Simulated assay, not measured.
Amino acid sequence: MYKSKYEAYSFLTEDPKDTLACDFEILSDEIASKIGFLASNVKNVELLNELKFITELVYHINPTLRTFLSVTPEEFEVLLECHNKLKHFTKGRCEMFVLPFGSRNATYAHIIRNNFKSLSRIAYAEERLGHSVPDLLHDILGILSNYFFYLSLYFNMSQDIEEIPFVSRNYFL
């Protein structure tokens, strides 16, 4: 196999076949970039600082499958507080599913939410391959996915945009 001397990331070809660590790292880097893009549209300083904190956490979880989880219990608690604050603030905003519509920031938060679900899927797949994955990593990824869901509700709420409910024909018959 050809290995370019200009490769942007050394693990692109060196990762063993039985691990998804490189995929996890590339997607987490992409997510961090998307959060940075979203943050560029945020004027609220408190929320901007929160997104910066979350972006740093994403970079800390990036090498977890290859090395170890370096997120501290204190950082996890701060993340949980951020999540719970948004969940409380948007309480009653939607009952179940909503279409990923609304403001530009809300729809982009939905994209990031979904990316965290994909990252979570990679982490579970890594475990199915027989590798150890910290339980806390699974918790962090779930919290981050939900955080960005609540953030999308917050963005729509702050612009007086109503959520569009979605009722599934498959799950609620």
Rank of each mutant, 00 (worst) to 15 (best):
L47Y: 12
G142C: 06
K5E: 14
I35Q: 08
K34F: 12
N49Y: 03
H110D: 07
I143W: 07
Y59W: 05
L47G: 01
K17G: 13
L57C: 10
F148N: 00
R128W: 08
E162Y: 04
L153A: 02
H131R: 13
F149E: 11
K43S: 15
S132K: 12
E162H: 14
M157P: 02
Y147W: 06
R128E: 14
S152Y: 01
I31G: 03
N146A: 10
T64Q: 03
E126R: 02
S33P: 01
L69N: 06
A32C: 14
I164F: 06
F97K: 04
L129H: 07
A32D: 07
R66S: 12
E50T: 12
R93G: 02
S158E: 10
T55E: 10
V167P: 07
E30S: 12
Y147L: 03
T55F: 01
Y171Q: 08
E74H: 13
S33L: 02
D160L: 07
V133I: 09
M96I: 04
K17C: 07
F89K: 14
D29H: 02
Y147E: 09
S40D: 03
M1D: 11
F149N: 01
Y147S: 08
T13L: 11
V58E: 02
S28L: 03
E95M: 07
V71C: 13
C82Q: 13
P16F: 08
N156W: 00
K91I: 05
L20F: 08
E75G: 09
V78P: 00
S4I: 05
E162P: 05
P134Y: 13
V42Q: 11
H83T: 05
I61V: 15
D18R: 15
T67H: 12
E163V: 10
N156A: 07
K3S: 09
S145R: 06
V42W: 06
S40H: 07
G142W: 01
F37Y: 14
T107I: 07
I161M: 02
Y124S: 06
F148W: 05
E77D: 14
L27Q: 01
N170K: 07
I164L: 10
R113K: 13
L129M: 14
A21E: 04
T19M: 05
A8D: 13
T13V: 08
V167R: 15
R113E: 05
I61M: 02
N84M: 03
E25W: 05
R128I: 01
L86R: 07
M1Y: 11
N115W: 00
M96V: 12
V98E: 12
Y59D: 10
K3W: 01
H131T: 02
G102S: 05
S103I: 06
T19K: 02
H138I: 12
F166T: 08
L47T: 10
